[in-house]
Design a protein around this nucleic acid. Structure first.
Length: 575
RNA sequence: UGCCUCAUGGUGUAACGGUAGCACAGCAGUCUCUGGAACUGCUUGUUUAGGUUCGAAUCCUAAUGAGGCAACCA
């Protein structure tokens, strides 16, 4: 029943939201069901920050055996669309969460919200105000000084009701009149100084079309939506903290009107709590900045594999499992932290290492000629598809006299502890045999163009007959069988951990010029027919995903999802 | 010259008046047909000043620092 029942009621080690919900469950305040909600406004694509909120909202419901609604918080039609709403649904499903029957929209409640507004007017809790926005600025006061009451504040309820109905009927121009709550113009919390409840806005709504020309504000709509849905725990980000008293004020009014849901004899009073939003190093998270990147064509679109959007991460090759694991590991608190993107990358590698099939591809080739291998002879060698997963089986990879290996796997004059190809040093050609470099052929400029050597005929499969240990193993592809692969090498979008952290510089100044490099790699034949979206580990290089937009069977395009950890790079750089 | 939050290693989080722990990152090593993975070890922390207490990261006060609040946005 209650999560945590087994641990003697101890709340130790659980974050503050879990403890909060556990207390309410124990006190019987949920009517037997914890109900949460994820309430996006469908005005853009969701990103990894939303993924954190989704994991919290859906995760808490799951953990406490309750449910989580998906609700489009579509009270401002000016930037909203079905396209966004659909993308949000798709992304949440992809992340692995399901709202079941619990799909809602603020728009479906417009009529009820309107009725509540009328009753608020009748009860003396709201009035129609005719102050212009400019005038209101003066009346409202500043955070440090109290405001003044609107001259329309004490007009009769009948007069306000009449004006409000005429607002709905479309008798007034946009922005002229508005409905205000009558609360406290002297409150230190600005949100209590007669906040706007309804504004006039002749913008067609993507769902209700032209039916309405007045729309409720977030502060009015949100608690109503929560209350009608029987939401018990309404979790949001820190910037809404100062809105909480207003949220409670609306819930109080609904309570007075007898509008709160009763579940199993318990009146459900929705409660709001706030947590810190996710900040990730080397990226930006604000919708506005992301939009700017798209509009200024700094990236190819919302789903550019460098974007922190869910669709971008998906296209890059991120898995839902990795993202969920990440969201679990970062925890939940009220501290405005910046999480190291290295943790996200760790979660990804951890997931992919277990599941991704191995393939060989050479990104920056140099030719190898095995002088004691007959020119026409081709052998198919069996290579493990995934050493982490015995069930993944093996595949056959063609091997011949001429191969490609990575240019960086060859050094004519080796540095210390270089275990790869260098004259006189034996290495293992992954899954094939042992090879010793004998000499190098260079071009006119002295650049190595061909590495020559011999193989040990008694080492077929990769092990020496006498059992001698070989330090280095490298990947390769047969030159005669290699297929060209367009590979997009993605790197971090920004060059600094906090692109927004310098007040004297625009974040665009920190854009990483090398965040995308396109190359043609040489790959083993099996990669040519990769299905789009499929993720492989290119051995010793990294994880790569067949691009869902541009890749075709026979004309593959791969995105580098993330590199493998490369501890040699550190050693090599020190020398 | 207001109100509301927050502050634990490099990063993120736990410890709820009684041994400051975990993960990532970093460093060193073992192992290995991926210089991957796995395994072992190490470095590094309670913002400051008072107070309460036998005992404070934890409670109180103040200071400092960070963030939020003055859309007819959400």
């Amino acid at each position: 029943m209650i999560a945590g029942d087994g641990d003697k009621g101890s709340d130790t080690g659980r974050h503050f939201l879990k403890q909060w919900i556990a207390e309410d469950v124990a006190a019987g305040r949920t009517g037997g069901t914890v109900v949460t909600r994820f309430p996006p406004e469908p005005n853009g694509y969701i990103h990894i920050g939303h993924a954190k909120a989704i994991c919290i909202d859906f995760g808490m419901a799951r953990e406490f055996g309750g449910r989580c609604n998906l609700r489009m918080d579509d009270t401002n039609p000016s930037k909203e669309s079905d396209e966004y709403a659909e993308s949000i649904k798709k992304d949440i499903r992809w992340l692995g969460f399901d709202w079941g029957e619990g799909f809602y929209s603020a728009a479906n409640l417009f009529e009820q919200m309107y009725e509540i507004a009328e009753r608020l007017i009748e009860g003396g809790h709201a009035y129609v105000c005719e102050l212009t926005q400019e005038q209101w600025k003066e009346y409202r006061g500043a955070p440090t000084s109290p405001g003044r009451e609107s001259p329309f504040r004490n007009r009769s309820a009948a007069e306000s009701l009449d004006l409000f109905r005429r607002m709905r009927a479309g008798e007034f121009a946009d922005g002229t009149l508005c409905l205000r709550a009558k609360i406290d113009m002297a409150s230190p919390n600005i949100h209590f100084r007669d906040p706007v409840l309804y504004r006039i806005m002749r913008v067609p709504h993507y769902h209700t079309g032209d039916k309405w020309c007045i729309y409720p504000m977030y502060d009015f709509a949100h608690p109503i939506e929560d209350a009608f849905e029987g939401v018990t725990h309404s979790m949001c980000t820190l910037e809404f903290e100062v809105h909480r008293p207003l949220y409670d004020w609306v819930v109080d009014r609904m309570d007075e009107m007898g509008l709160l849901v009763v579940r199993n004899g318990v009146k459900i009073r929705p409660q709001q709590r706030e947590f810190a939003r996710l900040n990730l190093s080397y990226t930006v998270m604000s919708k506005r900045k992301l939009l700017q990147l798209v509009e200024e064509r700094r990236v190819s679109g919302w789903d550019d594999p460098r974007m922190p959007t869910v669709c971008g991460l998906r296209r890059r090759g991120y898995t839902p499992e990795a993202i969920r694991d990440f969201c679990e590991r970062i925890g939940v608190s009220k501290y405005e932290s910046q999480t190291d993107v290295a943790l996200l990358e760790y979660c990804l590698r951890d997931d992919l290492n277990r599941r991704a099939l191995r393939r060989m591809a050479v990104l920056d080739p140099i030719k190898v000629v095995i002088d004691n291998w007959p020119a026409d002879k081709v052998e198919n060698v069996a290579a493990l598809n995934n050493p982490e997963d015995p069930d993944a089986g093996t595949r056959l990879v063609p091997f011949g006299r001429e191969l490609f290996i990575e240019r960086e796997d060859f050094m004519e004059v080796p540095s210390k502890k270089f275990f790869r190809v260098t004259p006189g040093q034996e290495v293992r050609l992954r899954a094939a045999c042992l090879f010793t470099c004998t000499h190098v052929v260079k071009d006119a400029e002295g650049r190595a163009v061909e590495v020559h050597g011999t193989y040990d005929p008694d080492s077929k499969g990769g092990n020496a007959a006498d059992g001698r240990k070989i330090k280095g193993t490298i990947h390769w592809v047969s030159a005669a069988h290699a297929v060209p692969l367009e590979v997009r090498l993605y790197d971090r979008l920004f060059t600094v951990p906090d692109p927004m952290g310098d007040d004297t510089k625009d974040f665009l100044e920190f854009l990483n010029e090398d965040s995308l490099r396109k190359i043609t790699a040489h790959a083993e034949p099996a990669l040519a027919e990769a299905a789009t979206g499929q993720i492989f580990q290119f051995e010793r290089v990294g994880y790569f995903c067949a691009d869902t937009v541009d890749s075709r069977p026979g004309a593959p395009v791969f995105n580098r999802t993330v590199t493998l950890k490369d501890s040699w790079a550190k050693v090599g750089n020190k020398q």
